[in-house]
Design a protein around this nucleic acid. Structure first.
Lengths: 151, 151
DNA sequence: TTTGAAAAATAATGACC
DNA sequence: GGTCATTATTTTTCAAA
């Protein structure tokens, strides 16, 4: 997990893998104009450096049955972060979680559920039931317009 | 792009592909307990139904040189959505964008940049320079704690 | 860092229950 | 849906330049 300086080749490799996570190393090497062997060693280096964490499927939330999405901000009791984030990590509906500053919110969560009723339950019962959570504020998502979260 | 009902097998396939986007169809079929041929046809169906949109690399933003992240909320002039979201779509620093309700904000953006100075430029020059954007509010991310954006 | 060779693994198809 | 057989590709490693 050393620090790395990415050069143009690394960036192009990451770009191609981001565009198509299942591209063959052969095709990737051609696109980036390096040898296959070199492409393998670059990918290996990027993985070891922790830059490339893995590969995943891109699933459309709406079409996969997650009809309701929301950003939920939390204000939390001081010093409750460690336990709290550990609890939140185990809530499957929480898709992204970040500690933030610059506003009254301390934590922001991207939450996805099958429907509004379930969202209500997650917010009111699950989130507000976690010790340390003082208040919640829900921004219902009307439309998802871009998702390049891994680029 | 027909509507689909996902059964347990579909969900398990999607799960495995989310956990490892480069798993071989062979290994996937074994994990999910279906034949290879069947796994192929399921994946094909999920793709055609728009449930499975593709595959991508999971890149660590910090280690890939994106040291600063923030959620930026916007209030926007009514009826300016179409043009505005089109403009935002072309801002590479915008990683996720959603239209929201339930608060004073109309749009929320996940923005990632190399450093704070660049974030400042993106917010003050780029975002506030877009016609229709009335106000911005920045929540600086101190720590990214979960990223299951595509599950 | 490139190239080429070679073995092992995997993908993809089609024929048939 | 599932199985099996077959062929085509790809991955991966390694030696050599």
């Amino acid at each position: 997990m050393d620090d790395v300086v990415l050069d143009e080749t690394d960036r192009r490799i990451l770009h191609e893998l981001t565009v198509d996570g299942r591209i063959s190393v052969r095709a990737l090497a051609e696109k980036v104009n390096v040898s296959r062997g070199h492409a393998y060693s670059r990918i290996e280096r990027l993985r070891e450096a922790g830059v490339l964490e893995g590969f995943t499927a891109v699933v459309n939330p709406l079409r996969s049955g997650l009809g309701t999405s929301a950003y939920v901000t939390l204000t939390v009791r001081q010093n409750s972060w460690r336990d709290l984030t550990e609890r939140l990590r185990h809530v499957p509906e929480v898709k992204h979680m970040a500690l933030v500053g610059g506003s009254d919110a301390d934590v922001i969560l991207l939450v996805r559920t099958t429907d509004n009723e379930t969202l209500r339950r997650v917010v009111l019962d699950v989130l507000q039931g976690i010790p340390g959570v003082l208040t919640t504020h829900t921004l219902l998502i009307f439309e998802d317009l871009a998702n390049r979260a891994f680029e």
